[in-house]
Nucleic acid binder design. Structure first.
Lengths: 221, 221
DNA sequence: ATGTCAATTAATATCGATTTTATTGGAGGG
DNA sequence: CCCTCCAATAAAATCGATATTAATTGACAT
C-alpha cells in the first residue's frame, strides 16, 4: 500500500521515527527549551498518529530532553546555567572513569576502531555539520566503549546529548570556529593509542572544560 | 461514576498506577529477570487498558528495569554478575561525589531532615519490610539531596533501585539479618552531622561494599 | 473594580478496534 | 531426515474516538 517513496526508506517504526525526529528538533533548538509540546501539534508536524508521538515523548523523558508534567502533558526540558554546569561536572567525572577503564582494557581491535572513527570524523568535518556532529559523538563514544560498562556508557551518551544541546543553543549550531578542535582530538587519540591514561584523561577533560567555559561565558542566568 | 471504593483512593492516573505496580513487581522479583512482558497478560493483571500498560513499560525502560526489543515488545531487564558489579562501581563513584557535595552545602535545615528521616527509618524497621525499604531509600537519598545536583541525584536513585532488585532476588526479600545495619546507618548519619566528609563517605561506601560482597558471593554466573 | 465561581473550551489520558509484524507449525521438496 | 517455504496464529504497533481533566472565559456578587 504505502509505496515507500521517501528518500530514507527504513523508518523501523512510527514511534522510532518520531523519537529520532523529536530528539533532533530538541537538540538543535528547533523546539526551544521549556516549550509546551502538544500532541496534536506534533502529530501534524510529524504526520503520524497520537500514540507514536506520545510514546516518543515518553522515551525522550528518559533522556531528560522532555519533561512530563503530571496530567498536563509534556514540555521540552528547560535549560539553565546550573544545569549546564552539572552536566559538565558529571561528564568529567563519568568520562574519566570510563576512559581509564577503556584504556585498561585496551587491545589492538580497540585501537583499530579508534583510528577508524577518528578518520571518519575528520572526513565528516569537511561535509555537513550534522554529519560531523554524528561522527564526533561516535568518536567520543569509541574512546569510552572499551570500558565495557554499559550503564556508564549510557550515562555518558545521555550527558553528551544534553551538552550538545547547549552548544546548539549557544551558537545556533556547532561553534568550532575559534579553537583548534582537530588538534585536541588528535592529542586525545594519540594518548589513548599510547595507553597513557593520565594524559588521555587530561586532554579529554581539558577538551570539555574549554568548551564549557566558552559556553558558560555566553549564558546569562 | 467510578465510586472509588478502593482502599487507597488516589491513583493519580492509570499510567502512573501501572508504572508503580510494575516497578514493584520487577524490583521484588515477582516478575523475574528476562521474562517476556506481554501487554495482554499485564493488562489483565493490572486491570487497565493497553495504553497505560504500554506507557508504563516505556517509562520503566528509562529506569533500565525493562528492555524494549525492537518490534517484539518488552521484557524485564536481565541480571548478571557483571551488571551487578557495574551498579556497585557506579554507585560508589556517584554517591561519593553526591555525599561530598551535600556535606559541602550542609546547613541546619539539612541536618534536621537527616535526623528526621533516620528516625522514620528506625521506626519503619519495626513495621513491615516494604515500609522499611521505602524509608531506607528516603534516608539514603536525604544524605545526597543537599548536593543540589538533580541529575546526579536521579542517577543515584536509579542505581539504588537497580541494586535493591538484586537484594530481593538474592534473598527473596531484604536480607538484613546478619549484619548490624542500624549501626552502619548511625555511623553514616553521625559523620554527616559532623560535616566530616571523609568519614561519611568511608562509612557509606563500606556500607555498600559489604552488601555488595555478600550479594556477589551468592551469585553464580 | 476585583475576586470567585460556573460554564465553556482545549488538551490530555484512555479505550476498543484495526493494521502490521513476528512467531509457530506443518507440508512439500531436497 | 533435515531444510525451506507458506499458511495460521499470536502479539505488537497504530489509529480514531471517547472520557477525563485542566485551562479559560465571562458573569455575578461584593
Amino acid at each position: 500500500m504505502d509505496v515507500m517513496l521517501d528518500t530514507e526508506g527504513k523508518e523501523k517504526s512510527a514511534t522510532h521515527g518520531a523519537y529520532r525526529r523529536l530528539r533532533d528538533m530538541i537538540l538543535t533548538g528547533e523546539l526551544p527549551p521549556g516549550q509546551k509540546l502538544k500532541i496534536e501539534q506534533l502529530r501534524g508536524l510529524l504526520d503520524t498518529g497520537a500514540s507514536p508521538v506520545r510514546e516518543a515523548l515518553s522515551l525522550l523523558t528518559s533522556d531528560m530532553l522532555v519533561e512530563r508534567i503530571d496530567q498536563r502533558g509534556f514540555r521540552a526540558a528547560p535549560v539553565s546555567k546550573s544545569n549546564f554546569e552539572e552536566i559538565l561536572l558529571l561528564r568529567c567525572n563519568l568520562e574519566e572513569t570510563a576512559l581509564r577503564a577503556s584504556i585498561a582494557n585496551a587491545d589492538g581491535a580497540w585501537e583499530d576502531r579508534l583510528v577508524l572513527r577518528h578518520h571518519h570524523m575528520k572526513k565528516a568535518s569537511q561535509k555537513s555539520a550534522p554529519d560531523f556532529e554524528d561522527a564526533h559523538k561516535v568518536f567520543h563514544m569509541a574512546l569510552l566503549e572499551n570500558a565495557k560498562l554499559p550503564l556508564l556508557l549510557r550515562y555518558c551518551s545521555q550527558l553528551y546529548d544534553l551538552n550538545i544541546r547547549y552548544r546548539y543553543l549557544a551558537a545556533g549550531g556547532p561553534s568550532y570556529k575559534k579553537r583548534d578542535i582537530a588538534a585536541e582530538h588528535q592529542q586525545i587519540l594519540d594518548a589513548a593509542l599510547d595507553y597513557d591514561a593520565d594524559s588521555a584523561t587530561r586532554h579529554l577533560l581539558n577538551h570539555y572544560r574549554r568548551t564549557g567555559e566558552y559556553l558558560s561565558s555566553q549564558m546569562e542566568s
